[in-house]
Design a protein around this nucleic acid. Structure first.
Length: 545
RNA sequence: UGGGCUAUAGCCAAGUGGUUAAGGCAUCGGACUUUGACUCCGACAUCGAAGGUUCGAAUCCUUCUAGCCCAGCCA
């Protein structure tokens, strides 16, 4: 369920008062990196706010700084947003508007609202003043309109070196909001742009470009994060003085931060280079590509974002909140099958050596529509190593022990009798007997087993590589830097088996009974199944001591 | 120290003068169970602090405290 939020209230008021007939939102990423879970709030909220009120949603790349941007990021971002199911009504690039932006800047010049400044970057900084002191006006501030027109044209025509001149808005060097102290709106930068190639040598700054982009597209509600709050006066100033026909409204909300997760680009890069994680889509990360690879259903991310709402406060949400939405999405949709990820052999001494039988079991007891599958059963099985302890440790132990009887789910009761060890003293084979009377579905009711465990038939089971992930960051109360809390041993690779009757489809997710939800990884080949653990099952089991 | 924000449970988050202060996650009990799952029941808040206004305040006023953002030719 979605939490109500103040932006909905604003939209509903605007609709009711007839300020707008249609709501138009946008998600404006800069193509300079990949998206992560934190971006999902902005994407999904912009999307559903437009859809809920029958409006439109644009994807617009805010590509005004060619030195940082690349087309490979535009492709990656498009893929991630499409995966989330947030279909954009239109795809735009800020760079498509460069000519109009230039004309609007020229309008500012002609109105005496902007001037060409020859000060160096360093001098501009010095003139800007600081929190306690007003700035000083640029000596070039009073150039004539004619000269400014000529100079700005010359900037565009490439007559000056990079950085030699800038175009600045003429506002107020004494303004308490530093953003209003004659901000730079165009810089000279000879850089190859991924979209406009070498057509331009001047590029607009964010503060100038963004409100124009929104106005050009007829965006009604321009959502952004809190740090732009004190840019809003400038945003409004540009919309007004550039004489834009449509007037968008900027509304700020709090960024979605996730506690104990690596979000920063440079840190991720470092971890990838150090081999601590495998790649940008390593399932221990929370980039959207990593979540996709881990097998997280996109709708679970929608549920998560909606539950969080759109507050103006900023906290650190715990990731386990997402886990619960993932389980909820899988609960009735995923097939529930048997897999043993840390196998130990069980031999049934009273079951015919050459016999194999077929048992039928439902694929999901909470969703009969999924049908059933056939399980094979023989005298040699695998069970989970942790499901056996020679001696029952306490009355809470609901698994197998010597002399103790458990039910193999969808099969028979078995009782462990003796055990063999390998050279290291680890259990190698458990010898057990089964009771044919206890077959599942027979209605046998004479006695209760000491629990239910899962198994696979050793003679037919399919081998599988299973990757288990733990927290990449070790939660810690101490406020030490996150890079010092990296769990370098957070990935475990197991070699186990899944039941024979199952042929997983590409990226298919399953519940491995009693273990969790697992999704087929793209590393799977014709002769090697590879699964990622998407999320474990909840468990109230607490091992004693 | 200038400007802009934020503060409700361990973590999120509704609430906009009259409610027993929603809901989710986590935690702790208990029931049920062919998944120690699911489901179901139950527990869990002196609303950052102090004053004030009011019959009545998380909501209004005052003062204070804590935290975040801003001095790029980044976005």
């Amino acid at each position: 369920m979605e939490n109500k939020n103040f932006i909905r209230t604003i939209i509903e008021t605007d609709l009711k008062n007839g300020k707008h007939d249609e709501i138009v939102t946008r998600f404006p990423p800069e193509p300079n990196g990949l998206l992560h879970l934190g971006h999902a709030r902005a994407i999904i909220m912009n999307y559903i706010l437009s859809k809920d009120y029958g409006g439109r949603f644009n994807l617009r790349f805010d590509d005004t700084n060619p030195v940082k941007e690349d087309t490979i990021f535009v492709e990656g971002i498009k893929k991630d947003i499409a995966w989330l199911g947030c279909h954009w009504d239109a795809l735009y690039f800020a760079s498509d508007y460069f000519e109009e932006m230039y004309q609007r800047a020229m309008l500012l010049v002609k109105r005496g609202k902007a001037f060409v400044c020859d000060l160096s970057a360093e001098q501009i900084k010095l003139h800007r003043g600081d929190f306690d002191n007003p700035g000083k006006e640029s000596p070039y501030r009073d150039r004539s309109i004619e000269e400014n027109i000529r100079l700005f044209e010359a900037m565009r025509n490439g007559e000056f070196a990079d950085g030699a001149k800038v175009l600045r808005a003429k506002i107020d060097m004494a303004h308490p909001n530093i953003n209003m102290r004659d901000p730079v709106i165009y810089r000279i930068q000879r850089a190859h742009h991924h979209n406009t190639k070498d057509a331009w040598c001047i590029y607009p700054m964010y503060d100038f470009a963004h409100p124009l982009e929104d106005a050009i597209e007829g965006i009604t509600h321009s959502l952004c994060s809190l740090e732009f709050e004190d840019h809003r006066p400038l945003y409004d100033w540009f919309v007004k003085h550039c004489e834009m026909e449509q007037v968008p409204r900027q509304i700020e909300f709090g960024k979605l931060n996730i506690a104990n997760q690596i979000m920063g680009k440079r840190l991720i890069r470092k971890l990838v280079e150090a081999g601590t994680v495998d790649a940008w889509d390593d399932p221990r990360l929370i980039t959207l590509s990593a979540l996709r690879r881990r097998g997280v259903p996109p709708l679970a991310i929608h549920d998560f974002v909606k539950a969080l709402g759109l507050p103006k406060s900023e906290g650190h949400t715990e990731i386990n909140m997402l886990d619960e939405f993932i389980r909820e999405r899988f609960k009735v949709s995923a097939k529930r099958i048997h897999a043993v990820i840390d196998p130990v052999e069980v031999v049934l001494t009273n079951y015919p050596e050459d016999k194999t039988e077929t048992l039928t079991a439902p694929l999901n007891r909470e969703n009969e529509a999924l049908g059933s599958r056939e399980l094979t059963f023989s005298n040699t099985l695998y069970i989970e190593r942790e499901d056996f302890l020679e001696e029952k440790p306490n009355k809470k132990w609901k698994r197998l022990s010597l002399g103790i009887e458990v039910r193999l789910m969808h099969a028979y009761f078995i009782k462990a009798n003796t055990v063999d060890y390998d050279a290291n003293g680890n259990v190698k084979t458990i010898y057990a007997t089964y009771d044919p009377e206890t077959k599942s579905g027979s209605g046998f009711n004479e006695r209760k087993p000491n629990g239910n465990i899962h198994f696979v038939d050793a003679k037919t089971a399919k081998p599988a590589e299973i990757r288990l992930y733990e927290d990449l960051v070790i939660p810690d109360d101490d406020a030490q830097p996150i890079e010092e809390k990296i769990n370098t041993d957070s990935k475990q690779v197991k070699y186990g088996f899944i039941e024979s009757g199952i042929t997983p489809q590409e990226r298919e997710s399953f519940q491995f009974t009693r273990l969790g939800y697992f999704t087929l990884d793209e590393d799977t080949t014709a002769d090697r199944l590879v699964f990622n653990r998407t999320v474990a099952l909840r468990s109230s089991f607490k091992p004693k001591r």
